[in-house]
Design a binder for these strands. Structure first.
Length: 484
DNA sequence: GCGATCAGTT
DNA sequence: CACAACTGATCGC
């Protein structure tokens, strides 16, 4: 695994930092951490890593700690915490102390305690909100996506965003809290960001990439989006338009495995093997440096064979993974699907009038109900909003299998929140003419037991009367052994 | 009333 | 227990 730069675990994004132009600023009333300035790459550090001598390597700077920690976050624990740990009993799994909040303190940032009013302050120098609707719609076709900036400037409206000035007036100064785009979402040497939509207009950002259509990545996108072009896969683009009502003139779909030149940087999207439309984003800068941003992905053998990786060295890997540890071994997708089909068949043998329910979020986990549908030759019932999304995938796999009436098939897809026993009981009542019991599958990203993670046969269903629920792992991103 | 954000849920 | 990805409640304008 060539890990040069990794983004911290996702929830770190939710941390709130005071931001003041080019430095991370701590609370005025607490100067113990001082001001940490950013290096030219946007890394908050006081001592440039390459300058750090072995003696200085003990110094706790963000960059030094970050690189030193490798994949074992425990090296970032404070000394007191280390003392409390019992090495004999302490497996890596006793990770309760590895709270991300601690890392922030160790890195020299103080979390804002009163996070009550978080404001996103748009960049004033940019062209926020200055683009009239349709002003770029003629550029929808991606020929030279880098045109965006010039199109906007042609309108001659590089003016301060009126909204932002209104906001600033209402600030009393000392209470100002700004959520700024974290460094690891910016691609050094470019004006690009990845999955950075919730920070308003990101200073200097002229192209916003979206890795995939999950809420924790697209957060901030809405019909009011006006901060710049959004580059993503065609399917992700369709979903952004359909579900979030983003003005299509901002959406620039990039086909997979196709090299585009955007502002002088070569950009290629690669299928991430995560949810439909999810992409790895490969950047090749004019100076030859190659960066790979993984977003969320599930590594597979096929990926290692891609020309981009075989022939070129990736200089910086942006890897966001919670499971970068050998203890995590997820079952192979095929094994999980075979298992689900086997359980379903067995259950139907014993209880022929069973309604089979699969839980799913807006997108992802489709393979689970698709596998059942194929194996049993039954259609898939989903509500109108999900059908709309599934049809947007543009695959006959879905269009040929969907049905609009729950009475016509024993296989239903429901929102994950409906998979509670009580909810399922109520749901069964609405189909009581046809079905007398429910078999529900809840594909989750997490199981507590490491053993069960390895052995599907150890999964035990939870049954309450005629409702039977199986919780199993259907991870859509990589376990340790799958990283390369 | 609406969108943004937080807190709670599975 | 702890994770991803919501969903519903609350806040501020």
């Amino acid at each position: 695994m060539s890990l040069s730069t990794a983004s911290p675990p996702p929830s770190l994004e939710d941390e709130c930092l005071h931001h003041d132009s080019d430095s991370y600023n701590v609370n005025d009333d607490d100067t113990s951490f001082g001001v940490v300035s950013l290096d030219e790459e946007g890394f908050p550090s006081q001592v440039p890593l390459e300058d750090a001598s072995p003696n200085e390597s003990e110094k706790s700077t963000f960059a030094a700690d970050f690189y030193r920690c490798g994949s074992d976050w425990s090296s970032l624990l404070s000394p007191e915490v280390h003392k409390q740990r019992d090495p004999a009993r302490d497996s890596i799994s006793s990770g309760k102390k590895l709270k991300q909040a601690n890392l922030f303190q160790i890195w020299g940032f103080k979390r804002n305690v009163d996070v009550g009013s978080v404001e996103v302050e748009p960049n004033q120098g940019g062209y926020c909100d200055e683009v009239g609707e349709g002003s770029v719609s003629s550029e929808r076709k991606i020929v030279k996506p880098g045109n965006w900036g010039s199109i906007l400037r042609d309108k001659g409206k590089v003016v301060e965003n009126p909204k932002s000035s209104t906001k600033r007036k209402s600030f009393s100064g000392e209470n100002r809290v700004t959520r700024s785009c974290p460094f690891y979402k910016k691609m050094p040497g470019t004006n690009f960001t990845v999955d950075a939509f919730r920070y308003g207009c990101v200073e200097e950002c002229s192209a916003y990439f979206l890795s995939h259509f999950h809420a924790d990545h697209y957060g901030g996108l809405s019909k009011k989006w006006s901060h710049g072009p959004i580059y993503c896969s065609p399917l992700t683009g369709r979903l952004v338009q359909m579900c979030l009502y983003v003005n299509p003139s901002y959406i620039f779909p990039l086909e997979f495995d196709t090299e585009y030149v955007i502002e002088g940087t070569k950009v290629t999207l690669i299928d991430a093997n995560h949810c439909p439309g999810a992409a790895l984003i490969h950047f090749e800068l004019p100076n030859g440096q190659c960066y790979l941003h993984t977003g969320d992905f599930r590594a597979c053998k096929l990926m290692q064979g891609y020309n981009l990786f075989v022939n070129k060295r990736v200089n910086v890997l942006y890897l966001d993974t919670t499971y970068c540890n050998p203890k995590y071994k997820f079952p192979f997708k095929e094994d999980v699907l075979n298992y689900v089909v086997k359980i379903t068949k067995n259950h139907l043998k014993m209880h022929p009038r069973t309604l089979v329910v699969v839980g799913a979020y807006s997108i992802g986990k489709e393979c689970v109900y698709l596998a059942i549908s194929k194996a049993l030759g039954v259609k898939i019932y989903a509500n109108a909003s999900r059908r709309r999304i599934l049809l947007a995938y543009g695959s006959p796999d879905y269009s040929d299998r969907l049905c609009t009436n729950g009475n016509n098939t024993l296989l239903h897809v429901l929102p994950m929140s409906s998979l509670r026993i009580e909810t399922l009981k109520e749901y069964l009542k609405t189909y009581k003419e046809q079905f007398t019991s429910v078999l529900a599958f809840r594909p989750t990203g997490w199981t507590f037991s490491e053993k069960i993670g390895n052995d599907l046969e150890l999964i035990r269903p939870v049954s309450r009367g005629n409702i039977t629920t199986y919780v199993f792992e259907a991870r859509q991103d990589s376990s340790y052994c799958e990283c390369w």
